[in-house]
Design a protein around this nucleic acid. Sequence first.
RNA 1: GGAGACGUAUCGAAGUGGUCAUAACGAGCCGCACUCGAAAUGCGGUCGUCCUUUACGGGACGCGUGGGUUCGAAUCCCACCGUCUCCGCCA
Length: 428
Amino acid sequence: MLDIKLLRNNFEEVEKALSGRNEDFDLGRFKALDENRRKLLAEVEELKSRQNAGSKEIPVLKKEGKDTTSLMEEMKQLSDQIKEMSGRVQDAEKELNDYMLTIPNIPHPDVPAGSSDEDNVEIRRFSEPREFDFEPKAHWDIGADLDILDPEMAARTTGARFTFYKGLGAKLERAIGNFFLDVHGNQGYEEIFPPFMVSRDSMTGTGQLPKFEEDAYKVTGDGKEYFLVPTAEVPVTNMYRDTILDGAKLPLKYCAYTACFRAEAGSAGRDTRGLIRQHQFNKVELVKFTKPEESYAELEKLTADAEEVLQILGLPYRVVRICVGDLGFTAALKYDIEVWMPSYGRYVEISSCSNFEAFQSRRANIRYKAAADDKPQFVHTLNGSGVAMGRTTAAILENYQQADGSVVIPEALRPYMGGLEVIKAQGD
RNA sequence: GGAGACGUAUCGAAGUGGUCAUAACGAGCCGCACUCGAAAUGCGGUCGUCCUUUACGGGACGCGUGGGUUCGAAUCCCACCGUCUCCGCCA
């Protein structure tokens, strides 16, 4: 959510800053909604002020033995008026608030211009794509040939865009997750294992709702409604919803493994094979709560921390700065880390690292006090994948494949797999 | 699933229809005094949000959340959320 005062006082600047965004929103309604709310609020508060004065007078008059009948009659009318006006104020506030939730974040000045992912700007690369002296296979074929990935089985039990990991495939995925958590733990991130289902309020707090409800899975039971987490960002960021944090303890750094659930609405026909775009996938997420003045330095560190796992695994990647048209609803600045995927012949997103500034914290009401007697102010929230596990499995299978169909396990993962060095087809 | 208790400021906790919610009382925290210094003691201070104002200030709201009753609700009624205890069940 944007700062309403900023919108009120610098409307033209905000309008200009949002102009490159590839989002559907309407700034035009703002002034009317805002002025309507303030006008109604002033009126009802005036009435309440009179009511409070009258309510104090009644017991005084009674004590003096005076008649209060006419005053009470007057107060009754005032009370009815207040009820009617309060309803109108509530409606106006809800309308304004609902509206504010549909305005995307203001891009940071460093965000490149552009309308699509083709306009993202490459910042740096690590390593070089491997030259194969044989025809490399796609990870879905490797997975089938080694009998470690089985989407057909998942189609039988569940449906499209799910996969069974089997045997060493399951073990590899689990090893990757444990490796990620250990690396990030050593970087100073506290490990969290959060609920995989969250409330509507949490989904609204981090910005998935109300605009992107069609992307989320909803679960009902015992008359309640939950959402399956699309990313650990949601439960971990919302840990401190409606909380005032101690400024001396910032930045707070967390890492969390969760399965992630996404409806992938609008992705029909895209990346239908393999592990790249599933309804359920695993991810380790990094989340930070920082002071505003430190958030961009912390974003650089967070991105570097995410990159480190790929460096250790020896996977070639590049980092791009996301352009305004590709930025997403909630971010002010975003880096994507893209891993080299031989089957795609290009770099594929494996992590997004974003600074949301106060956009989420204002929605979720996450604040801090720099000192005991300071006014609370909104923290900046950041997060980044550290990194997507399924895509890492895919990248390892493809980048570490051998001419004989086997896959070498990166050294850093071997301790997590009982020392195993190579995944070979059964019977080899 | 059954029975019961409870949700008030940073914490503990009082208040059970009115003029004590900037919230009693206690603790914590900050400042000052005393002291060589500390402890102890004393004094003072110590929530948030919104509206309005150049400012000083003024006003509204908040006792888990949302409704209701009433001239007036922390207090009475209803629903929901959460916490705790006991029983049952369960991984």
